[in-house]
Design a protein around this nucleic acid. Sequence first.
DNA 1: TTGTAAGCGTTATCAG
DNA 2: CTGATAACGCTTACAA
Lengths: 356, 356
Amino acid sequence: MTGSADDPKPRRRPRLSDVAQLAGVSLGAASKAISSPDAVRPRTRLAVERAVKELNYMPSEAGRALASRSTRMIGVAMPTLHHPVYASFFHALQNTLAERGYLTVALAHDFDREREIVLIERLVRRGVDALVLIGTDHAARTIALLDRVGLPYLYSWSSDEALERGAVGFSNRMAMHELVCHLAGLGHRRIAMITGEVRYNERARLRLKGVQEAAASKAMELVEVATAPLTITGGLDGYRRLDPVRKGVTALVCGTDLMAAGALHGARQDGFSAPEHLSVTGFDDIELAGVLTPPLTTVRAPIAEMAHATGEAIMAMLKSGEAVPTQVLPTALVVRASTGPAPAEPHATVTSFVSR
Amino acid sequence: MTGSADDPKPRRRPRLSDVAQLAGVSLGAASKAISSPDAVRPRTRLAVERAVKELNYMPSEAGRALASRSTRMIGVAMPTLHHPVYASFFHALQNTLAERGYLTVALAHDFDREREIVLIERLVRRGVDALVLIGTDHAARTIALLDRVGLPYLYSWSSDEALERGAVGFSNRMAMHELVCHLAGLGHRRIAMITGEVRYNERARLRLKGVQEAAASKAMELVEVATAPLTITGGLDGYRRLDPVRKGVTALVCGTDLMAAGALHGARQDGFSAPEHLSVTGFDDIELAGVLTPPLTTVRAPIAEMAHATGEAIMAMLKSGEAVPTQVLPTALVVRASTGPAPAEPHATVTSFVSR
DNA sequence: TTGTAAGCGTTATCAG
DNA sequence: CTGATAACGCTTACAA
């Protein structure tokens, strides 16, 4: 099928010079005909196009990258890819950048700062044209490295902490503020929170801060805060440590939907149901949120829009060579059935239920 | 020389020749000192190491790639990154390959064959050293392209369909077989299934086949099969279309845990609960499975092990230059509370429950 | 417009 | 073991 009589040919992958030769033009002309077809005579363009097809020529990015000093790769140092919102973000960012001919490379550091530096060094060596940093809380060494090598980078995800460099994201603080005000409106006075680790993670920190501030402004008591991994299991575990209902807490704010799912599960195991005994809230509005029992009241994070805006901002940055202004995307409170009026006598519930 | 008062130094990123010069050795020696430190005199190695540190030298992968004809990049054409199992797979594969100095690049085609080809072409141009294909069902054109350019590739995820090229995965068919036998043992005679689209997806196809075969061998009736997206919403929708309980179906097999979560939700909305009215099963054993209400009986897919084995196989392939043998990893039936004995009078349940 | 030739930053080859 | 020197495949002035 591929084998002709003279089979022992090395079959080197065709390169641009082969195309040029077959097309009867110079190397430079062939290059131009491919990269900017409108800058050459139609005659040349067609000859090159035909040769490309004939030879099944595929340009080598390695050669292009070396000569043009641009790999057309954008790196993203992600905390993780397991969490649905991060996966969605990467997916949308990749699609946005692919439209512009860029390849998006994601590395996950699992919320480990030291590992983040290692990954970023790797991306720098790989010659990415720019870097997306998730969140604004990064090691000084990381930033120093990027500045030293002159690599353009952009903060994404969190816009609370205004930075000279500009960030594309949303306000975790304000979103939580709105959510807690919703709880206040339902008559809740004693609330608790399950948060992700706030160290090295300003998203978690600012969500907590938003809750604290809102609680204070509405004269609610933030009875207790538990720190747990940003997973379903983490939420379950956090719920158990908190044991909110028995402490007279009527609303439990969770840092993510996944944690809220775990908390809801924990409450159910204890024989408590939402929102009768305890209102529960999440953050992110992932698909799961809508089909939990009960459906989860949460905050919609504009992940896809943010990814798109981040991609556009990166492109703008690369074009202009300058940092871009901060962009704040709106979040939205999504009220579902997991929140309701605070029970009149919260403590009464403690003894009235023993079933699982 | 550059130290004049007016010092507009361009601050070019240091390259290997700078290192060599500062270390007082030749370019070749410096290269070797870095890539294979044991192949040079200690004196040379130290001088180079010092120069590297002094200049903050970071090798350029672009240059290395061009000269060595290896980018040390491995491409993966993923169906999606949204689904937790695919995200986990990528994560584990990336970690495995990173240990060997390889960068793993993932592109998602969203179960679109044509898009897969485009993505793979992109990866080929990028010069990836090898490619991981998810599943065994790919367009002939895709395979032809890979063979034409001589790019090593490996099938992963599905091992049912033995291929000359070898695949690292597990048997979707056998896993489902075991699961359905479990249902048979519980006395179920009439079952239904919610499957993912089987076209261009042998995982879905083989899971369905496993169910069909097992049902036949156990004299069970596979009453109906609904096709739905591999999501929670898909499962919910599938459940509604099937309306299994009213059809006297006592067990519902879902193609993935996510779909099972949706189905469980649908059943609950209808006032049916598992496993009293309907047993429900999933596939994958994602974190969510354990905290659903009720916890889901499912099949554990060996994702992390598979990713690891895939990474090792790719490396072996690259080293030997030959295809590697097929590797079949074990799955495990995970029995939880969503399955139970078939109700004695399935039809009776229809009218006897109206709660919730 | 097109051709020529000089890089881009490594590795690889082959004498010394 | 080290040092020149030639690739690697492409872009990009600069000249024609």
